[in-house]
Design a protein around this nucleic acid. Sequence first.
DNA 1: TTGTATGCGTTATCAT
DNA 2: ATGATAACGCATACAA
Lengths: 336, 336
Amino acid sequence: MNIYDISKRAGVSIATVSRVLNDSPHVSPATRQRVMAVINDSGYVPNAFARGLGLNTMKTIGLLCPDASDPYQAQALAYLENAFRSRNYDCVLSCTGKTLEARITGVELLKSRHVDGMVLMGSSFIENNDKDNDYIRQAAKSVPLILLNGSFACERVYCVLCDDQRATMEAAQHLLDTGCKRILYLYHSKNYSGRKKLAGYRAALKNKGMALDESLLCYFDQDKMSVQDVRDHLLELDKKGVAFDAVLASEDSLAIGAMKYARATGKRIPEEMSVVGYNNSNFCLFTEPELTSVDNKLKAICDHIVETMMGVLDGKEMPQKTVFTGEVVLRQSTRK
Amino acid sequence: MNIYDISKRAGVSIATVSRVLNDSPHVSPATRQRVMAVINDSGYVPNAFARGLGLNTMKTIGLLCPDASDPYQAQALAYLENAFRSRNYDCVLSCTGKTLEARITGVELLKSRHVDGMVLMGSSFIENNDKDNDYIRQAAKSVPLILLNGSFACERVYCVLCDDQRATMEAAQHLLDTGCKRILYLYHSKNYSGRKKLAGYRAALKNKGMALDESLLCYFDQDKMSVQDVRDHLLELDKKGVAFDAVLASEDSLAIGAMKYARATGKRIPEEMSVVGYNNSNFCLFTEPELTSVDNKLKAICDHIVETMMGVLDGKEMPQKTVFTGEVVLRQSTRK
DNA sequence: TTGTATGCGTTATCAT
DNA sequence: ATGATAACGCATACAA
């Protein structure tokens, strides 16, 4: 069943059928009705590939992320998919893992599919070694790119992110303001976003005229950052005699590991130890006490990404970089 | 840059270029090399739409799920996307929410995109009122469908699932075997999978010759099932004088709500109350004590779905229904 | 082994 | 307002 079949049945040319299909004003009400009737009772649906070939678009956005099973990324995927769908765009997913090579082929593959745009989730898509970012520059030549929580200056690359540095600084400040003296900093990423957060932690100390104790910085590798790993690591620190009365984490799950440590040692939260997470994910409410965390405005970011993408595809001038302000959501794991 | 450009530069016909592109054996090594050289340094990539139009496929699978931000579904998406990608298929995502209407348009949209196959995640795609499943029968006529954790007898509809009834029965049995007398059953779904789990709970009681106390069945509505909601509901039950010494939940998050209730009332787990969740998700390890839960073999299910889909697309005969056996993973929230 | 010609199902241009 | 036809870029049957 194709456009020729319809045209025959309706006694018109394929051009007219096409016009009806595309709501062209140059069709008489009578023929429009006649054609529509045929279309409806034949169950005809235009062939998307042919349409794509002619228009050079299938209204598709590529969504790239390291790992769709990560709660934060999953939430972003859900937000983005919904928003794009409401604008009549479909999303094709590409989980690229953590190697640069896989990211490159992921971008390449989507490009070869002629997606209308791509969203790269997380600053891990930007390499510290700038030479390695050529694949982004290259891709941007043929399709608009939007970075979620990443920063990269390049034509046709747009960035929408949260001010992680400031948010982390405020979180640390809150800890200091509520009497904490030695804040353990737990982090898992050394890319753009990770560096910004660390900088925020440092800034908070500096603001108070405090020196940074390097032994309070705990880095966790991607595949060694389960709650158990974190708990065990903090127990180790205890043994080594590293003292701390607060934990600031670059991700909620790390904070939960810290709470497990507290449970294991009998330390009361927040009386003896305060804990702050990052992302304000659902499981801030799972813990006991509930976890103070940084809301990094994911929904707003995703909505803005979609807005930006639509604008770019419309040929409008769009801001290259948009920064949202995070917010510390106070709960019971920190003091008043 | 299209196939004609390449053919000119290489001094051959487009047919030869096409043959080179598709690894046809009927090309002399010499010309193949010449053509490849041109392709490589021109950066030419075949147009996916044209290819799709000719072959009537773009090697795409539609992934439908109610909510990509749900941890279980997010994990399934990640597994599926990876497995399909390794077979050179891309996945387009469609989060359809919870209304039948949205599911129908979701399926319809993907069908109009000519995806090669679709995976419907969760038994919520199968309506209790069979008339409402016509959209599935209809879709199955034009594209193979695979149900993840759903059951539906229909040509070209394949089902891969976990034996939720048996797994739930074993979980309940474990509670009874460890001395629990009154097991509160927390559930959130009345569709196929939900009914099976409930049946498993019932079966366990029956096996022990115990009568079912209807007041021990707690249903939670989709938008009223946060951990706080669950905690509050159990506190209500307490007030009403409904006694129980164990909680069996149809999903981990519900079980975590029960643990919050225990914390609120000071009940010790598992001494005074045992708790079992379902899905064996990451956050079984978040809680204190860690949560006993049912592993419903999601990875195996996803791998098998992809296998099945590939077989079907290859024209092979594939099993209509495959059932995996769940497994109760014992942790500290239940007694020995 | 290689080339020619046709079909895939649209949209869009240009007549009428 | 409507119709004829080219163009989109590829794969492939058939011819050479």
